[in-house]
Design a binder for these strands. Sequence first.
DNA 1: ATAGGGTTAG
Length: 562
Amino acid sequence: MNGIYVQREPKQLSLMSNGAIFVGKFVDVSAKQYYMNEMLKRFLTRVDSGARPTKYALCTALNACAKTSNWHLGLQFHAQIILNGYEDNVILSSALVDFYSKCNRIEDARRIFNYMKQHDQVSWTSIISGYAQFGCGVEAVFLFKNMLKSDIKPNFFTYVSIITACSRLKEPLELGSAVHSHVLKLGFVKNSFLISSLIDFYSKCGIVDGAALLFDAPMTRDNILYNSMIAGYCQNFYCEDALKLLFQMREEGINPTHFTMSSVLNACGSLSLLRLGRQVHSLVLKKGLVSNLFVLSSLIDMYSKSGSIDDARSVFDQTIERNSVLWTSMISGSAHSGRAKEGLELFDHMVEKGCLPDHICFTAVFTACNHAGLLNKAVEYFDRMRKDYGLVPKLDQYACLVDLHARKGDLTKAIQLIDEMPFDPNCVMLSSLLSCCRTYGAVDLGRKVACRLFQLQPDNAAAYVTMAHIYAEAGLWDEVTNIKKLIKQKGIKKSASWSWVEVDGRVHVFLVGDMLHPKSHDIYVLLEQLNLEIKEAQSIRQEMIFSLQFASVYRIPMDVDC
DNA sequence: ATAGGGTTAG
C-alpha cells in the first residue's frame, strides 16, 4: 500500500460487536480504502468460521465493496446473503444492484434488479444510476420511463441519475431540458447535488452559459459545485474562466480536491502556462494529492504540453502505481515532443508490466511512429492491437495509419485503408491525404479526395487552395482557373491569403480569398510587381524570401493549406 | 450509528 505508514487502525473505522462496520470520515482516501478492505476481510473470516452475519453488517460490507469497486470481496458477501436467506430483502437487493453496477457489472446488476419481487426508490435509482455511469443513457432513460409508470415516484436522487444519463445521450438536450423543468417544478432547485449534475449536463452539451447561470445563482457553493463548473469550463476550452474559478474558490476558503487539480492542470496545459502549472503542482504537493492517478496524468500532460518534457518524465518516474492512462500520457507526451523512440520503449515497458493498452494508448503509439516515420512499426502495432488485445481500430487509429502511409508516398495504400475501414473519413483525414497528394503530385487521386472534402466542408478555402496547388504544379492551368472560379462562385470568404509555386523556372503567385478585403488590392498590385521582378531575377528563391517577409508585414495567413 | 445521488486524467 503506497504512502500508508500508520501502524494502528484509525478511529474512523471499527468492527462492531454485531459484526457491523462503522465507517467515519477519512481524510486520506487511499488509507480509507486500505483499512476498509482489511476490515472487510476480517469480517469475512469471522463469518466463515461460523458467526451469523446480520443483514445490517452485510449491507454495510456490500456498500463498502461498491465504493472501493472490490468485486471479488463483494461476491463473497453476495454468497453470504444467499446462504443466510436474505435473498428477498429489498434493501440488500438494492445494495447488490448498486454494488454490481459500481463494479461495472451492469448486466449482473440488471439480473438482480429483474429478479426482485418488488422495487423501491433505491433499487430503481441504483439501476438507473448504474446505466448512466456505464454510459448507457438510452437504457437509463427507458428504465426511468418505466419507473414513472410504476407506483414508485422518483426522488431527487433519481433525478440526479437521470440528468447524468441525459448527458450520455446522442441528442441530450430535448430530454435533458424537460427533466430540468421537472426539477424546477418539484422545487429541487436549491439542491447542490442536482445543480452540479445540471452544470455537468449543460457543459457536456456545450452550453457553458447555461451552466454558468446555474453556478452564479445565489447559494452556498460546495467544492463539488466548483469542481463541476471548473470541469465544464475546461471541457469547453474556457480555460481562463476555469483558472479564475480556482482563485475564487481559494478566496472563499473552499478546499480544492483532486477533481479540481486535474481539471485545472488540464487548463494550464491547454494554455501552456508553465509557471502557473508549476504553482498548481506545488499546491498538489501541499494538499497531499500527489498519489492520485487523475492528478498525476494531468500533471504529466501539463508539463508535456508546456514544452517541459523532462519535468513530465520526472513526475512519471516518481510514480509508484501506474495505470494505462498514466502510461499513455507519458507515451503521448514523448511522441509529441519528438522522442518517438522513448515513447515506444515506454509502451513495451507498459505491456511488460501487465498494463493493458486501450485505443487512446495506441493512438499515442501511432503518433510516435508518425513523428519518426516508422511505417513498418506502425503496421506491426496496428496488427498487434487487433490480435493481441482484441481492440477494433477506430477512426483515430485509422487516421494515424493512413497519414503515415500517405506521408511515405504510398497513396494507394492510404486510400485503400480509407475505403476498407468501416467509417466515413473525416475532414482531418482527407485534408492530410490531400496535402500528401500535393507532395507526391498525385493529380487524379487528389481530385477524388478533394471532391469528398468539398462535400464535407463546402466553405473551407484550404481544400480549394491545396487542389489549386496540385493542378498548378502539374501545369494544368485551366483547372487552376476553374478552381478559382469555383471559389468565386461559392463566395467562399477568407481573408486575403496567397501562395506561390515554381514550375520550370516560372513563379506563379496565387491570391485566394475575399477580394473585398481592404488589403487585397494592395497585395495584388505588389505581387504583380514582384512577379515582374522575379522574371528578371537570377535567383528566384531569394526573391521569394523577400516576398514572404513582405507578406508577414501584412499579417496574411501563410499556412492556408494546413 | 448500520442501503441510493453530483465533479476529474491520457
